[in-house]
C-alpha cells in the first residue's frame, strides 16, 4: 500500500478509531464517513474502541499475502469488538490455542514493510486476553 494511503488511515489502524453514529447509535469499524443505516441523516463522529473482543472465525494462512511471507503461517481472524463492530485482523498466539469465541485484546505490531528500504507499516493485531 502506498505511503499516503496508509498514512491517511494510520491513526485509525494504530488506535482502533472508528465511527459512532450519534443518530442511530451504531458503532462502526473500519471508519466510515457515512452511516450505512442513517445515510445522509447520520451524525458520525470518530470513536475509539476499547480494543477487546472475541474471535468470530479464523483461519491459519499457510500461503501468505505479499507482505506476510516472513510471518507465514499466521492466524487471520474476524474479531467482534465488545462494542459491536467486526474487523479482520491477525491473532498472535500458539496455533493450537486459537478457537472460535476466544477473548482477545489489541496489540501493537508490525503489519508489513514495502521492502528493506521501504516504509514499515504498523497497526493493531490481537493477542489472547490473559486469565
Amino acid at each position: 500500500m502506498s505511503v499516503p494511503r496508509f498514512w491517511r488511515r494510520l491513526k485509525n489502524i494504530y488506535n482502533l478509531i472508528g465511527t459512532h453514529c450519534e443518530k442511530c447509535g451504531s458503532f462502526l469499524y473500519p471508519p466510515r464517513n457515512m452511516c450505512p443505516k442513517c445515510r445522509r441523516n447520520g451524525m458520525t463522529i470518530p470513536f475509539k474502541f476499547k480494543g477487546t473482543g472475541e474471535v468470530l472465525t479464523y483461519t491459519i494462512v499457510h500461503t501468505g499475502a505479499k507482505d506476510y511471507t516472513k510471518l507465514t503461517p499466521y492466524i487471520l481472524a474476524i474479531i467482534k469488538l465488545d462494542e459491536g463492530p467486526q474487523l479482520t485482523s491477525q491473532v498472535i498466539c500458539d496455533h493450537s490455542q486459537i478457537r472460535i469465541g476466544m477473548k482477545v485484546k489489541a496489540a501493537f505490531r508490525k503489519l508489513g514493510e514495502e521492502s528493506e528500504k521501504g516504509m514499515i507499516y504498523y497497526g493493531t493485531k490481537f493477542v489472547p486476553m490473559e486469565g
Binding site: K70, L71, I92, A107, F108, R109, K110, L111, I120, Y122, K125
Partner: peptide, 16 residues
C-alpha cells in the same frame, strides 16, 4: 522479539 515486533512496537506497548 516476535516476527512482527521491533523497537517501535515494544516502545508502544511499554508506553501504553
Amino acid at each position: 522479539p516476535d516476527l512482527d515486533e521491533d523497537t517501535i512496537t515494544i516502545a508502544v506497548e511499554a508506553a501504553r
